[in-house]
Design a protein around this nucleic acid. Structure first.
Length: 777
RNA sequence: ACCCGGGUGGUGGAACUGGUAGACACGCAGGACUUAAAAUCCUGUGGACCUUAUACGUCCGUGCGGGUUCGAUUCCCGCCCCGGGUACCA
């Protein structure tokens, strides 16, 4: 008799569920251990075999830790707000809540089959009002907070207001948007609108302005992904870069702490490196270039003030606010033409296509602060509005992008650094921070490093600018022009944004007739009947982004059913933070930065006492699909086995990977699978049709999706779990290939047989080898 | 374009700090057992050459091209290909 995995697995899965074997308490004499998986977005396609890889690893570790005497928190839930459900709703009219519920049920069924030891009593769903109530609550806490540079933490906005009342904002050192100075007396005289505007410049969750890809025809904002050559991918409508009011999060206030915090956590070096690069700390200085015949100036940020004497032009981003102002009448037509063309290309395209250099002269000049020379001001789309000041001082001899721009447009490339090795300045720039300064006035003969500090000192002395640390990290836009997300708990009283009192949360997502923007381009929530606070004040119509709910879910698991707080103090104190976090590396700079940010902010405000969400993190690799393709003769319906393909002129057709055993195609199955194969003629080798294989992303499109259910059905959950672990190092990406699974299945059967005789469990102390092997011990 | 990974037999992969490349396993082939099959056990298994066949032996081989070294999968330089990310996919 063989191992009957179906009965055995079913029996134990039912036992675990009935006895709540994996339910965990928030109190225990045992030491705690928190093992967390990145929770899934419940998509309509269900789980494929790639998804559970991390769950299997974490489940094994959880079980191990339990056996080692730990009280293990190992929960699971769903990141259930998101675009696909909304997109589906737009197409079918089906409410996203219904699709989401269906998908979750399917996920749960699949997860249960795999025998995970989750404590399902702690399940969370980000789209559930009992959950997003607290997401909204956290939003309000961040709305009522500002970042005090003196204490280096977020503090309550009340403290800031009382400081304004006492001393105005002169003594305040905060991370904030640009704001004029005012005294206590002035503050007291400001009206509500003015006070609101000023406070908004300080709040951590704030209504600010940000550039977005606005598509008037679709009435919505698009991701860079959805924009191609200034047109929307869907429909091909024009898209414009537009400065729009947007709820945002002042994550930049935490740039330095997010950087420093990496030192104390056990995450992979590559992941830390990715976060460091994303934060992009660079030290340099601002410099103002006065415009000729004008009081205006252009401010640039540079990390290379040593090359200041090598500036041969200044380049503005097409979106720069001065573009319109400084363009001379003779250049106006050309500039306008260029600006409309380029500023609507996505940032991605602008950076990616370095071969497509373009720029246009504004007609204006700035004055070099040290030489007094006239320097032309250009517009170029390689300069991004969102980074630094949206303007660069171009030093073509010592910056590669400036070099390309200058060469293309025939501009000067004055050399100011003499490299210590020979370098052909006709062929490229010398970017290295090495060499001796020449042609640089007071900087001559200095090495690069001393020149940098010397120049900053001089710039500050002459009040031309200020030494500054710049971060590439930008504040995170927090509003989305979408339906299926958390409503932002804000209403407008005479255009002043006001927080909804926290005891009135949750602000529940309203019903709408269609999941589309209104005719006037307002987000879908504007369609809701009477979307007003107290029937009077209009409510915010944008919703929160996908990362809102996932930025704190690890805390909710600690006390998932708490109605009076996001989690009790006791639970928070007991569980602290995640000991082992497993998830995909695609979240390296999104989710994993945001969750660290919220953790630090919540700590500052006194709600938790941990500084980092996860002590150890492992990125499981992605499991790719193995696609199968058959050869079909061009213009006929002959399917050719691989070995014979050289006799024919063929194209490759993807076929369902489930119809293939190794590389042999199940012809009868193929005929049933799609009509065009039913009538096809098959040219086989020894009666077999052999196909080609290729490694591709696992996706419906390539017919290479293998579901865990089908594997569990055929081989059992233990076999699936063991096989996935056997596939190779957890961190590495690897293609799924069902071929090897028989070996694991055999192993499990052998193991079972070792302890069973005629289907009965049998273990004895007798020496199995007694009398069979000489000198057996 | 930029940032982070990866590329080793038919397959998954191993090789620790520069020291016998291919551990371990899957698959495949041959054999034993069996009426037969399954299961189990044993043997072989990077490629080419030499050889009747073995043994012995020779050459090539870790994406490509160079370099450093007595010695390179490992270190350096320059490329190619694949995956992920690039801020409104999650």
């Amino acid at each position: 008799m063989d191992y009957q995995f179906r009965e055995t697995e079913k029996k134990w899965q039912q036992y675990w569920a009935a006895n709540k074997t994996f339910k965990v308490e928030n109190k225990s004499d045992k030491p705690k251990f928190y093992v967390l998986d990145m929770f899934p977005y419940p998509s309509g396609a269900g789980l494929h075999v790639g998804h559970p890889l991390g769950y299997i690893a974490s489940d094994i570790y959880s079980r191990y830790k339990r056996l080692k005497g730990f009280n293990v928190l190992h929960p699971m839930g769903y990141d259930s707000f998101g675009l696909p459900a909304e997109q589906y709703a737009i197409q079918t009219g089906q409410h996203p809540a219904i699709t989401t519920e269906t998908n979750i049920n399917r996920y749960r069924e699949q997860l249960d089959k795999m025998g995970f030891s989750f404590d399902w009593d702690r399940e969370v769903r980000t789209s559930d009002p009992s959950y997003y109530k607290w997401t909204q609550w956290i939003f309000l806490k961040l709305f009522d907070a500002w970042y005090n540079n003196k204490s280096n933490r977020a503090e309550s906005i009340d403290k800031l207001i009382s400081e304004f009342e006492k001393n105005g904002n002169n003594d305040i050192s905060a991370v904030h948007d640009e704001i004029e100075n005012f005294t206590a007396a002035q503050w007291k005289n400001f009206d509500e609108t003015e006070k609101s505007r000023i406070l908004m410049a300080y709040r951590i969750a704030y209504l600010g302005e940000a550039y977005v890809n606005w598509c008037p025809a679709l009435g919505t904002v698009l991701a860079n992904d959805e924009v191609k050559d200034g047109l929307s991918e869907r429909g091909g409508h024009p898209v414009e870069r537009k400065l729009m009011k947007q709820w945002s999060m002042r994550i930049t206030a935490y740039a330095e702490r997010l950087l420093q915090g990496l030192e104390n956590i056990d995450w992979s070096d590559s992941l830390k490196e990715a976060q460091r690069n994303w934060i992009g700390k660079s030290e340099g200085t601002t410099i103002r270039f006065s415009l000729q015949n004008s009081d205006d100036y252009i401010e640039v940020f540079t990390t290379r003030p040593d090359t200041l004497f090598g500036v041969s032009f200044v380049t503005l981003a097409p979106e720069h606010e001065l573009v319109d102002k400084i363009t001379t009448s003779s250049q106006r037509a050309e500039v306008q033409d260029y600006v409309t063309k380029t500023k609507n290309r996505s940032e991605r395209e602008r950076q990616a296509e370095v071969t497509r250099i373009s720029g246009v002269f504004t007609g204006s000049y700035v004055i070099h602060p040290f030489t007094g020379n006239k320097i032309p001001v250009w517009i170029g789309d390689y300069v991004l509005a969102g980074y630094g000041t949206g303007a660069v001082m171009a030093v073509p001899a010592h910056d590669e992008r400036d070099f390309r721009f200058a060469t293309h447009l025939g501009l000067d490339r004055p050399q100011v650094i003499e490299p210590n090795i020979t370098h052909d300045f006709g062929k490229g720039s010398w970017d290295a921070k090495e060499g001796k300064l020449i042609n640089s006035g007071f900087l001559n003969d200095l090495d690069v490093k001393s020149a940098i500090s010397c120049c900053i000192t001089e710039i500050e002395k002459q009040n031309l600018g200020k030494g500054k640390t710049n971060y590439r990290l930008r504040d995170a836009v927090f509003g989305r022009q979408r339906y299926w997300g958390e409503p932002i708990p804000i209403y407008y009283k005479e255009n002043i944004p006001v927080a909804i009192p926290e005891n009135e949360l949750p602000l529940v997502l309203p019903e709408v007739d269609k999941f589309l923007p209104t005719e006037t381009g307002e987000p879908p929530l504007a369609r809701a009947k009477n979307w007003k606070y107290k029937n009077l004040f209009p409510l915010e119509t944008t919703t929160m982004p996908g990362w809102a709910g996932s930025s704190w879910y690890f805390l909710r698991y600690m006390d998932a059913n708490n109605n009076t707080s996001f989690a009790s103090k006791d639970a928070l104190n007991y569980w602290q933070n995640v000991d082992l976090y497993i998830g995909g590396s695609e979240h390296a700079t999104g989710h994993l930065l945001y969750v660290r940010f919220w953790t630090k902010a919540l700590k500052d405000l006194g709600y938790i006492n941990i500084d980092e969400p996860a002590q150890k993190l492992i990125n499981q690799g992605m499991i790719q699909g193995t696609s199968c393709m058959v050869h079909r003769e061009v213009a006929t319906n002959k399917i050719i086995s691989v070995g014979l393909k050289s006799n024919y002129n063929t194209t490759l057709i993807h076929i369902d990977v489930n119809l293939v055993d190794n590389t042999e195609v199940d012809i009868e199955g193929l005929k049933k699978w799609r009509d065009d194969f039913a009538t096809a003629e098959f040219v086989t080798e020894n009666g077999k049709l052999i196909c080609e294989t290729a490694v591709e992303k696992m996706s419906k499109r390539w017919y290479n999706v293998v579901t865990p259910d089908s594997i569990c059905e055929k081989y059992g959950a233990d076999c699936l779990r063991m096989y996935e672990m056997f596939l190779g190092p957890l961190e590495q990406s690897k293609p799924w290939n069902t071929n090897g699974i028989a070996g694991v299945s055999n192993f499990i059967r052998k193991l079972w047989k070792l302890y069973h005789n005629n289907g009965k469990f049998e273990v004895s102390n007798e020496n199995r080898y007694k009398g069979r092997i000489k000198n057996a011990s």
